[in-house]
Design a protein around this nucleic acid. Structure first.
Ligand code: MN
Ligand code: MN
Ligand code: ZN
Ligand code: ZN
Lengths: 133, 133
DNA sequence: TAGATTATAATAATCATTATTATTTAGAAG
DNA sequence: CTTCTAAATAATAATGATTATTATAATCTA
């Protein structure tokens, strides 16, 4: 309860029940959520919340670095609690989406050496997972 | 002229002026195109073409592996002629999008060893390019 | 050259996301 | 604790990229 308040205060974000609820959903479930899914979860405890508000809050939390945005599935944007660098694998058979932890890739170093500044790196892998194979 | 026909035949795709025109745009310009941009280019030589047709053709060419699809910019899908593995950098200042050539990352090997089959790998990098820095 | 199959053009529909705005709320100041 | 102002929310409309529909036209096989 208090950890969410702390996190928002640290980013100088006003404390509202809606924001706490959204943050709680993502931090309590280490999965990848679409906006609609977050909306569905939050509504359980907060039936009056508006979908537009969920969109706004997710965008805010992303800007402040409290959550991360994903664009691996064609249509919908996804969000997750993990903000450390990791990548994603999407199985084209079962549709499962899972995290991939990897060491900093050599390519990143090369870019930096070349003079560019990399602030974000997303590795999106598509294929067939070991279960489906 | 003949190379486009060859490419389509090899994939058992019916030859139509519209398909040749779309393929020509991408193969003659090594850039990243939105669907609207392809549409604009094709219309110069083919004023009667429909935007919906361009969407359909781009999807077909992608399925057949003749072109590649990109989803690094938030809203619009991009397409390009290069189908070999390479990655992309998007500068948040000037908006420039450029290719990054890199050796197969160690992460790919790790995935394969773990039993998954990777069919596609997209590295999306966001930051500030050397010009803007 | 004919005829079945497939593609195109025109247009409507979809649907995720964003914009708008009246109302409500958070939090600072007294 | 109460007041006040800036900011947030709810409700809803608008946007815009993509997809679906369908009548017409073109491809290509035999
Ligand atoms: Mn993840
Ligand atoms: Mn490229
Ligand atoms: Zn699978
Ligand atoms: Zn730049």
């Amino acid at each position: 309860m208090e950890q969410y308040v702390e996190a928002l205060k640290k980013q100088k974000i006003r404390i509202t029940p809606q924001r706490l609820a959204v943050l709680r959903v993502l931090w309590n479930n280490h999965r990848h959520f679409s906006t609609e899914e977050v909306y569905g979860e939050v509504k359980k405890d907060f039936p009056a919340i508006s979908l537009a508000t969920v969109y706004t809050i997710l965008d805010l939390l992303k800007q402040k670095g409290l959550i991360r945005e994903l664009r691996i599935k064609s249509d919908k944007t996804l969000f997750e609690a993990r903000v450390d660098m990791h990548h994603h694998f999407l199985c084209r058979d079962c549709g499962t989406l899972f995290d991939i932890d990897m060491k900093p890739c050599a390519a990143l170093e090369a870019m930096a050496v070349d003079g560019n500044v990399i602030e974000e790196a997303h590795g999106y892998f598509y294929g067939v997972c070991k279960k489906c194979k």
